[in-house]
Amino acid sequence: MHSENQKHDFEPKIIAFVCTWCTYAGADLAGTSRMQYPSNVRVLKFPCTGRIDPVFILKAFQQGADGVLVSGCHPGDCHYIAGNFHARRRFAAFRKLLEFIGVDLGRLAFSWVSAAEGGKWVEVVTDLTEKVRAMGPMVEFKDLALEEQWSGVINTPELQEAYDAI
């Protein structure tokens, strides 16, 4: 349990993408039951995990998130029949890609939290927050942004040559 008096040097930013039917309701239940967890998480509600485009996860990291959580209904319990199966398959492939581009997979968590599992929500959020806190800030994307030019400026001879050839 997160202690109020504990001071940390680094407070990670965690973004959670959750489905409205199971995990959002589970997080609501954690609230109604007055359970306590770290305040680092920001929740974005989707109708279904099937709606969550992997681009959102990249976007979250790019915007400075240190950890991302994706959570929906348990397999088989999807309110929309099979959306979470599509999500599961999509993220299984996406994790590989994320690993390839150099993101520590410890920063990305997937879980199934049902509407009756307020306690599990607390557990999942607390675990990810503490894990990411131990890992330190996510710098990969920021470094990348510094290394590579995203501005569109043509500032190397190779680029100039390529541009002139157009």
Partner: peptide, 17 residues
Amino acid sequence: REHCSWVHENREEATVK
């Protein structure tokens, strides 16, 4: 409420959130 004031005790943290 459910996602903030009920689950956090620290006033500063909860307000920022």
